[in-house]
Amino acid sequence: MKKVLSLLAVAALLVAAAPAKDGYEVGDKVADFKLKNVDGKMVSLADFKTAKGFIVMFDCNTCPVSKAYNERILALNKKYASQGFPVIAINPNDPSVSAGDSFEKMVDYAKKKGYDFPYLVDETQNVAKAFGATNTPHVFVLTKDLTVAYIGSIDNSRDAGNVTKKYVEEAVDALLAGKEVPTPKTKAVGCTIKWKPA
């Protein structure tokens, strides 16, 4: 009996430690959030009155995949913010696990890279959990009414020279044209989100 109880305790711990696997699917409506930006101001999606949608990007300072995509993320905002689809970057990594992802380091990184879009800290990791984000980078394209239209990677190759499918651009272009998103869900190799130790 004692053994069963301890096994149950272990199982409960493992369940508690595991990040939520559910989260949003394509077609779900997401809950708005309020997170601190690198400029110190709080940001919500509702603040973007004229937006036609959003490119929500779970990202970080430290992941080699994120670094490989950094220029492409800046380019996405350059191309689409003016068309009503701004990039909203969110860093969910716990700085006690990944020191390079502290708020101060985020401020430095955003300045160094010239981010012209919000780079928000998800300190409680509740937004990443609600979305069901697991990777950096991990993209969720939302429509104006905050419905998920696309989940996945920016494109189909970490090597910018080998890209043959620009998934996020295709999704946003389709939404702007009032069409169906051609590939609503994709997967790519990325870094795990650094969850708080249980």
């Binding site: 990777n135 997967k187 790519a188 190799v189 989100i193």
Partner: peptide, 15 residues
């Protein structure tokens, strides 16, 4: 990866 990740594990996003 959009093809092979699912072959190994459906719940895996590739992280």
């Amino acid at each position: 990866p959009n093809v092979w990740i699912d072959v190994i594990e459906k719940s895996w996003q590739g992280a």
